[in-house]
């Protein structure tokens, strides 16, 4: 049985189709990422699971139960909000204890569980602080503890790392992943950052225009994008249009080519160098060929072309991925 499943779920706002006939099944215990640009329907999908939105049509099941008529407070899911949504009038302890208090647990029972939850997110001893006295990373952990203390069967995370700086974000990615493995509960994670989705999730659903464009493992999505949108959005692949790709692939479909696979110096195509930027470990060279913009990543110590120079372009056999569903 799936932890969460969508059957042709739509959510319309007037003429806008925020979520458009989405089918989805998330198995129990999976770390599932919903990836997409803003307005792609990923956050609305998450809010549909939580119960903050109701589907215009279709049905949503959580562990087999149709939750269409269930308000958020009757669903076995909990949410970590993008802005954390910590209650400003309560201290950390009462924030984390909130759900247990509503459940009617005694003060003593609450405190024992809250202490454990705070320990889990390494915030033991912070109970008396007000949310306003915490750093962004600490607030994020409180939000996490507040949701986890409810022992949800599914944890929903709405861009939980969006407000953190790079270093903290990477650290939290690791922590979230190990936490998920430890607890074994289903995580549904919304993000617009493809790196985050690819590094953390077991499977990724790429959203665009209210629909799921592709659903698969990070490797699938990264190396075998099914549409030019995914090739471009997930990992900034080069998209070769049909007329450019067909001589090499023999198929009437566009093809994706990863920037690190595009080689300069020898090959069947000619490109004009329009830009060179140093990235550290490699250098990004942008080229223009027959009206298509291509990007190549040239590793350290390899010879670089000059701006405006025309160079030959090639790739290793098998590097070109045909996008048949485009």
């Amino acid at each position: 049985m799936s932890a969460v499943s969508f059957a042709s779920v739509s959510r319309h706002y007037g003429a806008v189709r925020a979520v458009d006939r989405v089918d989805l099944a998330i198995p129990e215990g999976e770390f599932f990422a919903m990836l997409g640009p803003s307005g792609s329907g990923k956050t609305t999908s998450l809010r549909l699971i939580a119960g903050f939105e109701r589907p215009t049509s279709g049905s949503i099941r959580i562990f087999g139960e149709d939750v269409g008529a269930l308000p958020p407070y009757k669903r076995a899911v909990n949410t970590v909000f993008q802005d954390y949504a910590l209650f400003p009038h309560l201290n950390v302890l009462d924030n984390v204890a909130y759900g247990l208090m509503i459940k009617g647990l005694s003060r003593r029972a609450r405190h024992a569980q809250v202490e454990a939850a705070l320990e889990m997110v390494r915030l033991g001893g912070y109970g008396a602080r007000k949310p306003s006295e915490l750093s962004g990373g600490q607030r994020q952990r409180v939000a996490l503890a507040r949701a986890l203390v409810m022992k949800p069967r599914v944890l929903l995370l709405d861009e939980p790392l969006g407000a953190l700086d790079l270093k903290l974000r990477e650290q939290m990615q690791e922590e979230l992943k190990s936490l998920q493995r430890e607890l074994g509960i289903t995580f549904v994670f919304v993000t617009h950052d493809q790196g985050e989705a690819l590094s953390m999730a077991d499977r990724v659903a790429v959203f665009n225009d209210g629909r799921i464009m592709q659903l698969g493992t990070p490797e699938d999505v990264y190396f075998r994008p099914q549409t030019p949108f995914i090739a471009d959005f997930v990992g900034s692949s080069n998209v070769l249009p049909v007329e450019m790709a067909q001589p090499f692939t023999g198929e009437a479909h566009p093809a994706a080519l990863r920037p690190e696979h595009l080689q300069l110096g020898a090959g069947p195509l000619q490109g004009n160098v329009t830009g060179i930027s140093f990235l550290g470990q490699s250098t990004r060279v942008t080229l223009e060929t027959g009206g298509t913009r291509l990007t190549a990543l040239v590793p350290q110590h390899h010879p670089l072309p000059a701006q405006g120079e025309t160079v030959a372009l090639g790739w290793a056999p098998g590097a070109l991925h045909v996008m048949r569903s485009a």
Binding site: A50, Q82, D83, M101, I102, A147, M150
Partner: peptide, 27 residues
């Protein structure tokens, strides 16, 4: 007041009236 506060409250099991009493009114 953040709009998500009331959502957070309901997410944690509080119905509308509990949310009113424990989150909205204090704020």
């Amino acid at each position: 007041m953040h709009g998500s506060l009331t959502e957070a409250s309901m997410d944690l099991g509080a119905d509308l009236f509990q949310t009113l009493r424990f989150v909205i009114l204090p704020n």
